[in-house]
Structures are given as structure tokens and as C-alpha cells.
Nucleic acid binder design. Structure first.
Lengths: 140, 140
DNA sequence: TATTGTTATACTCTATAACTATA
DNA sequence: TATAGTTATAGAGTATAACAATA
């Protein structure tokens, strides 16, 4: 058991907090470049992978299903997403990215340089060590 | 230059994304335990360190100063913060944590077990390696 | 004139509860 | 009855623009 006042642990936690802050900033900036909010960008990224029932989107975003209605509404109004019927269950609506939605999702991903830039300073060996430490930290 | 499709880099990025998500969840949960929103908790934590002009709070949160008015209003309504005049500049209002605000900030910090738990799996040696890698990643 | 904080406004996200159409 | 999605509502965070007090 490591006390929170342990200087080393405290510094690691501070560094993680910095990573978290920078990650969020970059994500919001990348989304804003495409006139998307963070939530809209997250949903569009999900839909670009595969069409999803509204409820599944809510589970991924850890929010109430009622919120997804508005987010998909706004994506749909911009021609980035559409609702399709589910052939197996007429209660379900499958939200899916349109062609333009897919293109936007790709460009959004390219904007997310958080991946490339900070990791570029690390060698393959170091990235491997970092991966293993993060895995263990996350209880993987 | 590391391509984003490099499997190792991709996995590290995914792990970081997981850390970010978990950090946020824990932070929101800890704040909610004290009936605070994330933004209110952030501001209260800042004010518990030292009184700050409204504008400085906005800079720390990277948002517009006008938003801070409402957040401090809500903290003030709950007796956790107060506005004081700045003796040096009568335009400035210094937001400060009240005694109860300080107590709440301390308990909030204790709730943030994100520090202890995941790091507990790592030895001192490993924490040191993690610290150095994060430092270099962040360009320190 | 410039700066600090506030107000007014509009938009988005969020949770809760009630509603509809299906199952 | 139960489930999927929606609507209605209210609260909070956000940016923008205009404002009063002070520098």
C-alpha cells in the first residue's frame, strides 16, 4: 500500500493528470476543427466502426440513452449520420455513419496527433516498457 | 516518426485512452460523492491551495472568465467558497475556500483513490521507470 | 483606453421521468 | 410486462457579446 504522500507516487499521479489534461485538450481541439463537440466526435468515431443501436452508444459513452437522441439528431442534421431500421427488431434504430461521416471520422482520427507526437520521443524498447507498465497499472 | 498504424504505438495510445477514461470517471464519482460537479471540484481544489482572482481560475480551467462567475456562485451558495476584495486592485475579486470548503477539498482529495490503487501494483523501481517515461513523453 | 468581473443569450450535454411502439 | 427510442424538463458548463466599475 503506497501512501498518497509518497513523493514518487505523487509525481506519477501528477504526470498522469497532465497526460489526461493534454489528451482532452487535443481531443476537443481536433473535434472543434471539424465543428464537432467532444461527444459528437466520440459518437461519430463509434459509428464509423460499425452501425450501433442507440442504446449501445449510450453504454459506450456511459450516459443515459435519452442523451444520444440529441447527439445523433445533430450528426444527422449535418449529414454525418443516419438512422436505419433493425431488420431483427423493429423497436431498434441503428445509427450509422454516412459516407461523409466516414470521411469526417477519418480526418478526425488524423487530427489526433496525440498518438504520434508524444510517443515519438520514445524508442521501441521504451514504448514496450511503457505498454507493459500501463497494462499492469490497469490490472490487465 | 512513428506511424499511427504501428501496433505497439496503437496499443500504448489505447492504454492511455483507458487511463484517461478511468481517471475522468473516478474524478466525477469522487466529486459526486460530495454533491459537486467536476468543474466545481476543480475550482474548489484550486481555491483550497490559495485564493485566486476569477480570471486566474478561468486560465487554469482553460475556459472563458464569464463561466467562472456561475461556478463560484454555486460554491458560494453552498458555503464552500467566498469572494474577497483584492486590496491592490479594486476591480479584482479573490475567490477563496471557506473553512468548510477546505474540509470538503481535503475529503475530496482522499476520495481520489486513482492515485493509490493502480500504482499499488507497481514496485518503486517500476514507478520510477514509469515516471521517467511519462516525463519524456510530455517533453519534460 | 484597457482590464476585471458580471450579465444576457444561446447551445450542448446531462439525468430523470413519462410516453410510444414494439416485443 | 418488458424493452428501445423518444420527448419533456431542468440544471450545469460553455462561448460570445455587451456592460459597469476601476485602472
Amino acid at each position: 500500500m503506497v501512501p498518497r504522500t509518497d513523493p514518487l507516487s505523487r509525481e506519477v499521479v501528477d504526470l498522469i493528470a497532465t497526460v489526461v489534461a493534454r489528451y482532452h485538450e487535443e481531443y476537443e481541439d481536433a473535434a472543434a476543427k471539424h465543428a464537432l463537440t467532444g461527444a459528437q466526435a466520440k459518437v461519430l468515431t463509434l459509428l464509423a466502426r460499425e452501425p450501433l443501436p442507440m442504446r449501445r452508444i449510450a453504454q459506450q459513452l456511459r450516459c443515459e440513452p435519452s442523451n444520444i437522441t440529441g447527439i445523433v439528431d445533430r450528426l444527422e442534421a449535418r449529414g454525418l449520420a443516419e438512422r436505419r431500421p433493425d431488420p431483427d427488431d423493429r423497436r431498434v434504430k441503428l445509427a450509422a455513419a454516412t459516407e461523409e461521416g466516414h470521411r469526417t471520422a477519418v480526418r478526425l482520427g488524423e487530427s489526433l496527433d496525440f498518438a504520434r507526437e508524444p510517443l515519438a520521443s520514445l524508442s521501441t524498447r521504451e514504448r514496450t516498457v511503457l505498454r507493459d507498465l500501463l497494462r499492469r497499472m490497469l490490472g490487465g
